[in-house]
Computed example of a mutant assay.
Amino acid sequence: MAKQRSKRYQKAAALVEGGKTYGLDEAVAAVKKFPAPKFDPTVTVSFHLGVDPRKSDQMVRGSVSLPHGTGKNVRVAVFAAGAAADAATQAGAEHVGFEELIKKVQEGFTDFDVAIATPEAMTEVRKIARVLGPRGLMPNPKTGTVTDDTAKAVKEVKAGRIDYKLDKNGNIAGAVGRASFEDKALVENAQAFIDSVIKAKPPAAKGNFIRSVTVTAAMSPGVPIESNVFATI
């Protein structure tokens, strides 16, 4: 039996014209007209890609710094020692440490949104990959979260950098702000994300790389974007 959608969802869905694709400006405007919940909902851009997630040479992952941030307070954990640890603390990381922080994670602590590690610390951090990996928290050089410049990494993450990775169904999604953002800020954030995913196309990907893109707010229907916004050569 199909789940009954809430009245708020149904009202929002009525504002999306069936079978139509929208320009990015139009899509953002539509999302901002959705009936508001009792909180400031996150606005998300989601992609369905024409790649095979089972093949390592078709993996898509990367990071992008959004020009207007995400509107979210990002909690950062940094695995480092010495000067790199001090720099991370001064840059505003909530949790900084090495062996003691690794032990805490082994015991189940994952109260953070992004993990950063120095290359030296990664030997030990790999021991908690089974905890961090399934939660999308494992530091990775490709996303700038394995670095000796911990201060820069912390500042970038807190300023609005998002990391993304292809899931097992060929999808990618990322938060590009809050519904309370100005239209222009959401459009520019969304476009920055779209451009980043286009650039992340792996050489092994053939045919139609991006099959669809939608913009939505939390607990609301998706608004499909017209293909010229994300067309690739």
Rank of each mutant, 00 (worst) to 15 (best):
A2W: 05
K3D: 09
Q4S: 13
R5A: 14
Q10H: 02
K11F: 05
A12Q: 04
A14L: 08
V16C: 13
V16M: 12
E17D: 15
E17Y: 12
K20E: 11
T21P: 01
A27E: 04
V28E: 02
V28N: 01
V28H: 01
F34A: 11
A36P: 00
P37C: 03
T42G: 04
F47T: 03
F47H: 09
L49C: 11
L49M: 12
G50I: 08
K55Y: 02
Q58G: 13
R61N: 13
L66H: 07
H68G: 12
G71E: 07
K72A: 14
R75W: 05
R75H: 14
V76Y: 04
A77M: 09
A81C: 03
A84Y: 06
A85K: 11
D86P: 00
Q90G: 11
A91M: 04
A93V: 04
G97I: 07
F98P: 01
E99C: 00
I102L: 13
V105W: 07
V105A: 12
G108A: 02
G108S: 03
F112A: 09
F112H: 06
D113A: 09
I116F: 03
A117D: 04
T118K: 07
T118P: 07
P119C: 10
E120H: 05
E120L: 03
M122P: 04
E124D: 13
E124C: 00
I128A: 05
R130E: 08
G133L: 10
P134A: 10
P134L: 11
P134F: 11
R135H: 10
G136K: 03
G136W: 05
G136S: 05
P139S: 10
P139K: 08
P141Q: 13
K142P: 02
K142R: 14
G144H: 08
G144D: 09
V146M: 00
T147R: 00
A151Q: 10
K152L: 13
K155G: 03
G160N: 11
R161Y: 04
D163K: 10
D167T: 13
G177V: 04
E182V: 01
E182A: 15
E182C: 00
K184M: 01
L186T: 03
E188N: 06
F193T: 09
I194S: 02
D195V: 08
S196E: 10
V197N: 04
V197G: 06
I198P: 01
K201F: 10
K206Y: 06
N208M: 08
F209S: 12
F209L: 11
I210T: 09
R211M: 10
R211W: 01
S212R: 14
T216A: 15
G222E: 07
V223Y: 03
S227M: 00
A231E: 15
